[in-house]
């Protein structure tokens, strides 16, 4: 049984990101992989050892501050779980939060959880639009599409990006990187949501989760016609 954990879905429910959880669950179910979802609310305890896939999204400013305060309580356990190979997908605000700090327009530095080596600086204009990136998964290059909408610019330290920007802004609109990747943690600015129309990423996460649980990680192929059509439409539009 794979256990999927959605952190604070009632707080962090912007931009349809729950579609990522939905995609992970459905692609397990369609293959007969037993899977269960637990939605963690504010104030509830989490046992990261019981989790195989953790999803952390973004919220509006106020809600994000509430989440940051809450996660701070679990910081050490979360860091340990990351080092032990817990599979995590973290999008937008959740991505920023795992880093060192967020510097506001007024220069104030709001500390992050400091689990991963990057920081974020608020910019004047939000970076908004469709985005295409290129990712390496098990030595195979995959083109992923999504939509970004972030005011913060993220700069990576000693950590690999998730992918390379082919069209759009990515982490900061300057260095061509998008997202971050450390062990089994995948961070990205891509909404859309990311997983449904990029099924190779979803399947990669499922495989890692199975491996982490010590289960057989061979996946039965699924019919991805609609997924590929949705992805192709955006690739064609953006990579003319």
């Amino acid at each position: 049984m794979l256990s999927v954990c959605h952190l604070y879905p009632d707080l962090l429910n912007l931009y349809g990101d729950r579609g990522n959880v939905l995609a992970f669950l459905q692609r397990c179910r369609w293959r007969g992989i037993p899977v269960k979802l637990s939605e963690i609310k504010m104030g509830e305890s989490i046992d990261f050892n019981q989790v195989d896939f953790l999803f952390l999204g973004g919220g509006s400013d106020r809600e994000q501050n509430l989440m940051a305060a809450e996660l701070e309580k679990h910081r050490d356990k979360l860091k340990e779980a990351v080092e032990n190979g817990l599979v995590i997908l973290s999008i937008c605000g959740g991505y920023q939060l795992l880093g060192k700090f967020y510097r506001t327009i007024n220069g104030e530095e709001i500390p992050g959880l400091g689990i991963l080596d990057y920081y974020t600086v608020a910019g004047e204009e939000r970076l908004i639009g469709n985005v295409t990136i290129e990712i390496e998964l098990d030595g195979k290059t995959v083109k992923a599409t999504g939509f970004e909408n972030h005011g913060g610019r993220t700069y990576l330290g000693n950590i690999k990006p998730l992918g390379r920007v082919l069209a759009g802004y990515g982490n900061n609109g300057r260095d061509g990187t998008e997202g971050a990747r450390y062990k089994n943690v995948f961070c990205s600015y891509l909404h859309g949501p990311l997983l449904p129309k990029n099924p190779e990423i979803t399947d990669h996460l499922i495989k890692l989760a199975l491996k982490h649980r010590g289960m057989e990680a061979e996946l039965t192929p699924l019919d991805d016609t609609l997924e590929n059509m949705a992805n192709e439409t955006m690739l064609k539009r953006m990579l003319k």
Binding site: Y15, L22, N130, F147
Partner: peptide, 9 residues
């Protein structure tokens, strides 16, 4: 709205 993510909500 250019972002169609909302249909997932």
């Amino acid at each position: 709205g250019r972002d169609i993510s909302w249909i997932w909500d």
